[in-house]
Simulated scan of single mutants.
Amino acid sequence: MSGYEGQGSAAGGMRRYAAGFVTRLTERNRLPLDYSVASLRVVDFLVDGLRKGAADRERVAGALFGLGAYVGEVLVRRAGAVWVDFDAEQRAYFGQPVGVRMPDGRVWNPLGKVVNRFEVGREESLQTFYLLLHGRVRQEVA
């Protein structure tokens, strides 16, 4: 699915993975994926498009992982998070190999949040997830 299963530190490669995914996705489409909080609305829209295409989760697993990596990278760049490898218990709970740790120590699962948006729909907004996220660094408006 992600290309990380069974490898060493997946967290160490997530920034590069997200950047590569964005490059591949935006070279054919003019999508405003600029790592801003507002761009999470675009991710919601993209996931909704995958849902409407009646694709099953397995067929779109790579796209969901890439979008989850992007959401995680927004948390890293905008909320002060860092990528972390999940331990065995966290992997079992979250169903993902990596996540992010917020400045207050809380661990979140952006990859799983994208899957939830795909499976549940609008109630699982990624932009709302960010705006309600506990433990984020609040950025001052310039």
Results as ranks from 00 to 15, higher is better:
2 S>Y: 04
2 S>R: 09
7 Q>S: 14
7 Q>A: 13
8 G>D: 15
9 S>E: 09
13 G>R: 12
14 M>C: 05
14 M>Q: 13
15 R>D: 14
15 R>W: 02
16 R>K: 12
16 R>S: 13
17 Y>G: 01
17 Y>P: 01
17 Y>T: 10
20 G>H: 08
21 F>G: 07
22 V>A: 08
23 T>S: 15
24 R>N: 13
24 R>C: 00
27 E>A: 15
28 R>F: 14
29 N>L: 11
30 R>C: 02
30 R>E: 13
31 L>C: 09
32 P>W: 03
33 L>K: 06
34 D>A: 11
37 V>S: 03
37 V>H: 10
38 A>Q: 14
39 S>K: 08
43 V>S: 01
43 V>A: 00
43 V>N: 00
44 D>M: 09
45 F>W: 13
47 V>Y: 09
47 V>L: 07
48 D>M: 11
48 D>W: 03
48 D>N: 14
51 R>Y: 01
53 G>D: 13
54 A>G: 12
55 A>K: 11
55 A>G: 06
55 A>M: 11
56 D>Q: 10
58 E>S: 08
58 E>N: 03
58 E>I: 02
59 R>T: 14
59 R>Q: 15
61 A>Q: 15
61 A>C: 10
63 A>P: 01
67 L>K: 05
67 L>T: 01
68 G>P: 03
70 Y>T: 02
71 V>Y: 01
71 V>F: 02
71 V>D: 06
72 G>L: 06
72 G>P: 06
73 E>F: 08
78 R>Q: 15
79 A>P: 03
79 A>D: 01
80 G>L: 05
81 A>I: 04
82 V>L: 11
82 V>E: 15
83 W>K: 00
83 W>T: 02
84 V>A: 05
86 F>A: 05
87 D>F: 10
87 D>P: 11
89 E>F: 05
89 E>D: 12
90 Q>I: 04
90 Q>V: 09
91 R>P: 03
91 R>L: 06
91 R>T: 03
91 R>K: 13
92 A>R: 14
93 Y>H: 14
94 F>D: 01
94 F>R: 01
94 F>W: 12
96 Q>L: 02
97 P>Q: 06
98 V>Q: 03
99 G>F: 05
100 V>G: 08
100 V>K: 07
100 V>N: 12
101 R>M: 14
101 R>W: 07
104 D>C: 08
105 G>L: 04
105 G>A: 04
105 G>D: 08
108 W>N: 12
108 W>A: 13
110 P>R: 06
111 L>D: 07
111 L>C: 06
112 G>I: 08
115 V>K: 08
115 V>L: 05
117 R>M: 01
118 F>N: 06
118 F>A: 00
122 R>T: 11
122 R>K: 10
123 E>C: 01
123 E>H: 05
124 E>C: 10
125 S>A: 04
126 L>H: 02
126 L>A: 06
126 L>F: 02
127 Q>V: 13
127 Q>F: 03
129 F>K: 00
129 F>M: 07
130 Y>P: 05
132 L>Y: 12
133 L>W: 05
134 H>D: 10
134 H>I: 00
135 G>H: 03
135 G>A: 04
137 V>F: 04
138 R>C: 00
139 Q>M: 11
140 E>R: 13
140 E>T: 12
141 V>D: 12
141 V>A: 13
142 A>G: 10
